[in-house]
Design a protein around this nucleic acid. Sequence first.
RNA 1: GCGGACAUAGUGUAGUGGUUAGCACGCAAGCUUCCCAAGCUUGCUACCCGGGUUCGAAUCCCGGUGUCCGCACCA
Length: 516
Amino acid sequence: MQFEELLSLFKRRGVLWPSAEIYGGTAGLYDYGPAGTALKRRLEAAWSSWFVGLSPNYHLIDPAEIVPEAVVRSSGHLAHFADPDVTCGKCGQHFRADTLLEENGVADVEGLAPEVLGRMLQEKNLPCPRCGERALSLPRAFNLMFGLDFGAAGKERAYLRPETAQGAYLSFSRMWEVGRNQLPLGIAVIGKAYRNEIAPRNVLFRMRAFTQAELQIFFDPENFSVPLDEVAGEELPCLRAKDREKGATEPTPIRAGELVSSGGIPSFYAYHLAMMLRFFRDVLQYPADRVRFLEKNEKERAFYNRIHFDAEVRLDSLGGYKELGAVHYRGDYDLSRHGEGSKTDLRVTPTGGKTVLPHVLELTFGVDRNLWALGDLHLRVETPAAASGGAAEGGQEEKEPRTVWALPPYLAPMQIAVLPLIRKVHAAKADEVAERLRREDGFTVVVPLTASVGKRYAREDELATPFAVTIDNQTMQDGTITLRERDSRAQVRLPLEALAGRVRSKFVPPRPTFRA
RNA sequence: GCGGACAUAGUGUAGUGGUUAGCACGCAAGCUUCCCAAGCUUGCUACCCGGGUUCGAAUCCCGGUGUCCGCACCA
């Protein structure tokens, strides 16, 4: 689905809209409406049951969104998560100090403080790349983090977290006690992260407040066994860094087993790459040929990442592959830094094992971006079959194109629509049935009353409601209903009592085999 | 951040200085109809914000905000 089409449908149907819209909107901030909120929660639930479900020793926590300055100093965000911004006094163009230096043959400038970069720039006395004037300002740190005046006097510095991961690292020692004193230990966080993006763009793709779902797996690098054999035959559409350097732009399928045996990738990494592919393919049901794993080379990835693949999905609305998740092998960087910064020994001794500073494998997932992708990939306009003239009386001849949001049922905002065929005759019964489904089975149920039944089906199709129950004259007599399935539009008649049992399992997202 | 384009009902749009600001879809009420956006009647909602020019501004000018595209950015 194309960008404008998708955005207008999302706004029209209450999925999302620009934040503070009555004041003209705020760049980079969006509000989710009822349908968007419901979908987002189900998406988070599906993520959670898949990734947290990988092991009984993986846990979901909800850490604070504000972190004191010491945390971002240790994590490196204070120094690195900033653009050393240089302005030309003549033409006003902005540049990055480190990029300018690199372009002029200075190596190893990455991560240097703005003052240091400033001295180097002064020594070189570089001209403005745009207008040629030697009028460049000193670098000013433009930090992408939102700073806060914290505490009663506003004197303490704190920041809105730029990523959820830090909360997991900060909780590690507590979780070691809460958990079972065993590695691997998984800490998952789903929540908002905040970045003061210079140029927010593409709605949910670069926001200033966005939701991440991340699983940090802490493990002993000498002892992290995974059931690789379960996924060894799985073909992973990888675009390796070395192939990209040779000019490759398309992924080559590599079996997870081969990635380990001949690809130089550790088995724990290949296994989780495969599990992430399964999540995209089997849980979110993205078409397999639209997903690829792009390996970042040494220059592209953060210095502490030892292996880095982005999970990318090709979206028509954004004209190409977009990063929707990633797998980072971060080594012991995080615990090591926070150990030093907090003067806390974060090494642990698993029962019967030796003392280690755990390494971290990070599986990250952009919730908002994937919500957009679920629209892009699953919304489709179906045109009526060309030859439809001969349909029988009372048949299901379609006359107009319909828009169907073919979400997996466990992601759909509304689960069941109960439609009185004729409002005056069947509405009371419909309410009764809907209330019973809500009360006894916990389904989310809507009862559309207005417009013709065909139009009501169409509205529900567009908002992904997977099942419609129709109340007709026969329902009034014998208590049977018809159940309509969204994608096929096929209807079956069955006793009301049989309904819940028939659909319940469709609302449970798939999960991996839980291994103790 | 820079450059370009754009900004009119819920959505998509027409409107080159004076219009009751038009249309389509939509939404709502009623009639009709037991099954896939039918029909009829009635109704609803808009010129992004702030200045300026002008007798008069949706329309021209300036500033702001927002969106898209390109560049840059995305530890």
